[in-house]
Amino acid sequence: MGRLAKVLVPLAVVGGLGAAAAAGYVATAMTVARMVVTPSRRTRQDVVIRSVAPDLSAVTLAGTGDALRVPGRYGLWFSQDRGYARIGDILSLAEDGSVTRAVESVVWGDLASATRGRLSGWYFTSPGELGLPVRSVEVPVDDGTAPAWLFPATEPSDRWAIHVHGRGTQRQETLRGIPVFHEKGYTSLAVSYRNDGDAAGSEDGRYGLGSTEWRDVDAAIAYAIDHGARHVVLFGWSMGGAIVLQASVRSPHADRIAGIVLDSPVIDWVETLDYQAELLKLPRPVTQGALILLDSSWATGLVGQDAAVGLAGLDFTLRAHELSVPVLLMHSDDDGYVPAGASHRLADRRPDLVTFVPFSEAKHTKLWNVEPERWTAAIAGWLDRLDSRS
């Protein structure tokens, strides 16, 4: 059976399609599969900047940004990311759906002349903004080096935390999590990994959705051990959650991993990709075909990968029994990118290890932004309990 026939036949049978229709769906499925694993540097400018107060104290926004009308503090990138401002409280909501929010500061750029932008959960854009000691280091990885930010503990410590960002973003995403670990006496390492735009890329230039990136986190664990770490906590955001879960069961240094923190994690890629396909209103046969392509060794050339992803091996609702260290899991039920269902299932299957802290209105990776005190207290309390065990 030829390569395309291996997709055509199941789609034609399952979807009740003729060969010609199935062939069209396969072409679309190939495009979708490639998009899933291809790093993109383009960002949607989905926020319209209606007006800016003359003194730059407030901005009126409209559009489809996921947290546009959700309380909290966010970053506002504007003018094709040439400018950045921090915004906060909602001052008013208009009948047309626009919202006026306080501007906490304009970090750079000309906000007054901006017309479009996008919201970000980052808030902090550089490590120096945390007011903590920090230095840049290089972690040796398979194909070169991966830049990282090292935040040393106030006193020498053998407790380290490794912070891993999500898909399509960079180390800045993790900066929100550094202060609470510093307060608890941890040295923190905010890392990069293959194909994220900072670290050395892989030969195929494709994401492995955790199936390859875990090696770079393993290299970061080795770096921490070489510099005195005995107990390592892995902190993964979004796809970073999938990465650290893989590292926890595949790393040669797994015996040094004391715990895992997950913020809006991908626990089950099939559920996540199905959810995103529904949002895009993709026909079911297209989604099914994309999953087949991502998961098949014979399709790597079609997708552009060196190896198949292996979606079942990334599903920790199926591998929950393999977890061996405490996990703090935080997810919002209104996450519009990674559904929280798999997080609930994982927590239900391993109540002995998983502490689940649900949120109801915090979108994707914006839990800190919406409820910073609750988010920070959850991590601080969990670290106290973890440290009391060791």
Score class of each variant (00 low, 15 high):
residue 198 D to A: 11
residue 351 P to L: 12
residue 212 T to D: 10
residue 333 D to P: 01
residue 81 D to C: 09
residue 380 A to W: 09
residue 164 V to C: 03
residue 13 V to K: 07
residue 88 G to C: 00
residue 334 D to T: 02
residue 184 K to T: 10
residue 208 G to Q: 03
residue 19 A to L: 15
residue 363 K to W: 00
residue 158 D to Y: 04
residue 95 E to F: 12
residue 103 V to Q: 03
residue 354 V to R: 09
residue 220 A to R: 09
residue 188 S to W: 13
residue 334 D to K: 04
residue 295 D to L: 13
residue 338 V to I: 11
residue 228 G to N: 07
residue 125 T to S: 13
residue 282 L to Q: 09
residue 216 D to R: 04
residue 227 H to F: 15
residue 178 I to N: 12
residue 345 R to P: 11
residue 213 E to C: 05
residue 253 H to G: 00
residue 91 L to Q: 01
residue 54 P to I: 02
residue 137 V to W: 04
residue 286 V to C: 08
residue 284 R to E: 14
residue 220 A to W: 11
residue 20 A to V: 13
residue 233 V to Y: 06
residue 225 I to E: 09
residue 300 T to S: 10
residue 344 H to W: 14
residue 67 A to R: 09
residue 306 D to C: 01
residue 16 G to H: 00
residue 87 I to Q: 01
residue 261 V to D: 02
residue 345 R to N: 09
residue 207 Y to L: 15
residue 221 I to R: 06
residue 110 D to M: 03
residue 333 D to S: 06
residue 170 Q to M: 15
residue 98 S to K: 01
residue 196 D to T: 06
residue 313 G to K: 09
residue 330 M to P: 00
residue 71 P to I: 08
residue 307 A to K: 07
residue 377 A to G: 03
residue 83 G to Y: 11
residue 259 G to H: 01
residue 251 S to C: 10
residue 149 W to I: 07
residue 218 D to C: 02
residue 65 G to E: 04
residue 322 E to K: 03
residue 233 V to A: 12
residue 160 W to C: 02
residue 252 P to E: 15
residue 229 A to C: 11
residue 386 L to Q: 00
residue 136 S to Q: 13
residue 289 G to V: 05
residue 306 D to E: 07
residue 210 G to P: 01
residue 87 I to T: 02
residue 30 M to K: 02
residue 60 T to Q: 00
residue 338 V to Y: 10
residue 32 V to Q: 01
residue 240 G to Y: 08
residue 196 D to S: 09
residue 138 E to Y: 13
residue 325 V to L: 07
residue 71 P to A: 05
residue 357 V to I: 00
residue 266 V to A: 12
residue 139 V to E: 14
residue 332 S to L: 05
residue 250 R to V: 00
residue 96 D to G: 05
residue 219 A to N: 07
residue 260 I to H: 04
residue 244 V to C: 08
residue 212 T to K: 07
residue 206 R to G: 11
residue 99 V to F: 04
residue 5 A to H: 12
residue 196 D to M: 06
residue 119 L to S: 07
residue 323 L to H: 01
residue 85 A to V: 04
residue 115 T to W: 08
residue 337 Y to T: 10
residue 373 E to I: 10
residue 308 A to V: 05
residue 358 P to V: 06
residue 153 A to S: 14
residue 193 Y to I: 06
residue 306 D to Y: 11
residue 138 E to H: 15
residue 79 S to A: 05
residue 218 D to E: 08
residue 388 S to A: 15
residue 23 A to T: 12
residue 36 V to H: 03
residue 144 G to E: 08
residue 16 G to I: 01
residue 121 G to V: 02
residue 84 Y to L: 11
residue 179 P to Y: 14
residue 74 Y to P: 00
residue 188 S to F: 09
residue 291 L to E: 14
residue 106 V to S: 05
residue 215 R to K: 13
residue 44 R to Q: 15
residue 49 I to F: 08
residue 59 V to H: 05
residue 74 Y to W: 05
residue 374 R to I: 10
residue 178 I to L: 05
residue 384 D to G: 11
residue 388 S to E: 13
residue 238 S to H: 04
residue 343 S to M: 08
residue 146 A to T: 04
residue 171 R to W: 14
residue 333 D to R: 05
residue 132 L to G: 07
residue 170 Q to Y: 15
residue 384 D to E: 15
residue 85 A to H: 03
residue 295 D to Y: 13
residue 305 Q to S: 07
residue 25 Y to C: 02
residue 389 R to K: 12
residue 156 P to G: 15
